[in-house]
């Protein structure tokens, strides 16, 4: 797959999508520091912890994680990962995580990053991609996933809690990657 990939966003900003590299650690720390705390709260790991970002960097080149960045003028504006188990009953499933800077949301950047990772998943022979979203917090991402043929497979009621203790449902979405004839 060819990188870097050029994309033009809805507001005419030009962005580049490319794989995460070992040298990106300082910029990735800066990126996560710019993500609002209310968004970071719902992430799987505490990305303000340098060890967490170092773990992401260490995963570069390993077979079970593929991470990409979107950059504008060399600054990271989005980070996405496709996580694969590589063995067992769910080796055919990839899990997606995407984080976009607030000022770059609703400009189709997330969609381009997502489309790129869908291509990666298809190249790796995966059958399904899974993404989890907190309803009421990540509704824009749910809508974007819907447009790319992700569908709701389950909702876990009250699974996530806000800092104040308000419970939110977690929606699990899956996209099937057709290996032969598409459902078009």
């Amino acid at each position: 797959m060819r990188y870097p990939k050029e994309v033009v966003l809805k507001d005419k900003t030009e962005a580049i999508i490319r794989p995460l590299e070992k040298t990106d650690e300082p910029k990735l720390l800066e990126f996560y520091a710019a993500i609002p705390e209310k968004d970071r709260w719902y992430m799987r790991h505490d990305v303000m912890e340098p060890a967490v970002v170092r773990m992401m960097i260490k995963a570069v080149g390993r077979g079970n994680v593929f991470s990409t960045l979107a950059t504008v003028d060399d600054d990271i504006v989005a980070h996405a990962s496709l996580l694969m188990r590589g063995f067992g009953s769910t080796r055919h499933v990839g899990r997606l995580r995407i984080t976009v800077l607030p000022e770059y949301r609703h400009k189709r950047l997330g969609t381009w990053v997502l489309l790129d990772l869908i291509q990666v998943a298809m190249d790796r022979g995966l059958n399904d991609i899974r993404a989890d979203f907190v309803i009421g917090i990540e509704d824009a991402a749910i809508e974007a996933a819907h447009k790319l043929d992700f569908f709701k497979v389950a909702v876990i009621p009250g699974y996530a809690k806000s800092p104040r203790g308000t419970r939110y449902d977690l929606q699990i979405m899956v996209k099937r990657l057709h290996r032969t004839w598409s459902d078009f």
């Binding site: 298809m122 022979g125 290996r179 004839w181």
Partner: peptide, 10 residues
């Protein structure tokens, strides 16, 4: 022609 080439779309 996926049928004729015996290939997946990818």
């Amino acid at each position: 022609d996926l049928d004729g080439t015996k290939k997946t779309a990818q």
